[in-house]
Design a protein around this nucleic acid. Structure first.
Length: 112
DNA sequence: AATGTGACATACC
DNA sequence: TGGTATGCCACAT
């Protein structure tokens, strides 16, 4: 049973729920999963996200500052920015423009 | 079992 | 104002 699926799976699920044109932070996801202090684990999960056969829009996940901290981990150094721009999100100097406004909090959005 | 790691977050100097 | 240091927790070896 149940079995609690791996923490990673939960992270992937939430990330996939991120609406297009929105972004969220590692801490927000961690908190939503109930492990607010495991923000690092969320990032760790994303690290393995590209191993998942299922699409995981990791480019929609940024750090608390709205900076594309994980862009260095993408197949291309511009893949993340490009992906975000395609979603209508402006990225300036590796930072999401108006991040605060585009921020998508799973705790609020999913709970509402 | 123990140790090392990490795409964060926060605190401190 | 920015770099350093520590906490934190789940996964990998």
């Amino acid at each position: 049973m149940d079995s609690k699926k791996d923490f990673f799976q939960d992270v992937y699920e939430v990330v996939r729920l991120i609406p297009k044109g929105r972004v969220t932070s590692y801490g927000a996801i961690a908190k939503y999963l109930g492990t607010a202090k495991s923000s690092r684990v969320v990032g760790y999960a994303m690290n393995a996200s590209h191993q998942q056969t299922r699409p995981v829009p990791a480019h929609r996940v940024v750090n608390r500052n709205g900076m594309l901290s994980g862009k260095h981990h993408f197949p291309s150094p511009t893949a993340m920015e490009d992906a975000l721009k395609k979603e209508g999100i402006l990225v300036k100097k590796d930072v999401v423009v108006d991040f605060k406004n585009l921020f998508w909090d799973p705790m609020i959005e999913l709970e509402l």
